[in-house]
Amino acid sequence: MANICSIIKEKRTAGQTVCHVFHGSKVLARKLQLKRLGFNDIPDELWIEINRLDAKRLLTDCLAHDLAYQINIMPEQKAQELASAFLKCFDKDTAFLTNQTHNFDNIGKGFLSWEPITNATFDTGIIAVKEGVVGILWVKDED
């Protein structure tokens, strides 16, 4: 299989997409990994842990739609396939963190609130955590 992160970055044509899967010595603590990637960390209590299904829904939404105006970037089916392929990189014991509350009953209508980890107007995604950050898929859009 081709590198899923390269495919995701190619297909999401709006804003900026950051996607990495880490192994071995590249797995670092959240604060250190985010700093290494140029992100800000937020306090532990502001990170929201979500299950794998909600991680898939969140990623599908932010891959399929622009964060600022909810303009379609790619077909929902394609975004769902990419989200699933990214999540398959992680075993069942992986935790998923996000910076935002999302209305999963109203996909395509945006998120409810968020705590930014970038200087972009809008940013969200998931961080996959298991004994350190093992993956990140984050999108940034401007108004």
Rank of each mutant, 00 (worst) to 15 (best):
A2L: 10
N3V: 01
S6Q: 14
I7C: 10
K9W: 06
E10C: 07
G15Y: 05
Q16W: 07
T17S: 02
V18T: 04
F22W: 10
F22V: 06
F22A: 13
H23F: 09
H23E: 13
S25V: 03
K26G: 15
V27K: 05
A29G: 08
R30N: 01
K31Q: 05
L32W: 07
L32V: 01
Q33E: 04
L34R: 02
K35R: 06
F39K: 00
E49D: 12
I50E: 06
N51R: 00
A55L: 13
C62W: 15
H65M: 13
H65A: 09
D66N: 13
L67A: 10
Y69V: 13
Y69I: 15
I71A: 09
E76I: 12
A79D: 05
Q80V: 09
E81G: 07
F86Q: 09
L87H: 13
C89D: 15
F90V: 14
Q100W: 08
H102Y: 08
F104L: 07
N106C: 06
N106W: 03
I107K: 14
I107R: 13
K109R: 14
L112H: 15
W114P: 05
T118Y: 04
A120T: 08
T121S: 15
T121N: 13
F122N: 10
A128S: 06
V133D: 00
V134H: 04
L137M: 12
L137P: 00
